[in-house]
Amino acid sequence: MVERRPFLNILTHLVLIAGVLIVAFPVYVAFIASTHEPSAFVRGVLPLTPGDNLLESYGQMLNAGWQVGGTPPVWLMLGNSLIMALTIAIGKISISILSAFAIVYFRFPFRMLAFWIIFITLMLPVEVRIIPTYAVVANLGMLNSYAGLTLPLIASATATFLFRQFFMTVPEELMEASRVDGAGPMKFFKDILLPVSITNIAALFVIMFIYGWVQYLWPLLVTTDEDFYTIVLGIKRLMASSDRVPAWNLIMATVTLAMLPPVLVVLFMQKLFVKGLTETEK
């Protein structure tokens, strides 16, 4: 601080505490709701202190799902979300790092064209190509499959740019030295370039994992089979039934479980998360 201003310091902390509370409040209420019995919601306004039905709510959703709400067990949906998020994260990173390697370390005809084709994906988010992409996936017979869930989301211009940017800062001497030692391009890639990129890969992985986990519109279109529901999609199904049977404890238990994995990833890998976020968006 430049000068002492005790009053301003107190105010700062008050604003921050208020901010933290506002940010956390909806999640707190959802968690509290998940610990009550269904009957708690019939009596009008929602309780603000935990109930004693926590294990029952979570146990039922995890193991059995909820037939009235039309969802399979949450374990299954969490598994699907995990598969989807991991496939998207690993897939995006693998194909992007390979193409960035090609663009930076080789000179070949149509290099600019390849770069532009990749660049264009930035301008075509799923939302603007919903129906024709659905048609392509349907024609390839990939509805209700993990391939259909993930492949159309896997191309990433941002990851390619990030790796390109990073490769440009890798000292020329590394490549020249490896070449003098008789190593070919793939050996250089595997033994030198991958190890020096590991922090970037990890940071990008955190961001892409979250991106994959929170996907909604695409799973909504390509999955009709309960076995392929992701957890985010499952919540929507539960919501649709809430007008008939307001089992809020079950819905909010699912909501809490859906938030937990990506939020834990952010909290425990905060440094990588911040690095990934601030670097991918530049």
Partner: peptide, 15 residues
């Protein structure tokens, strides 16, 4: 303050 980044838009809506 940073964790809501990881909350899916659908979940934010539901909350």
């Amino acid at each position: 303050l940073v964790w809501p980044y990881a909350v899916a838009p659908v979940v934010a809506g539901v909350l």
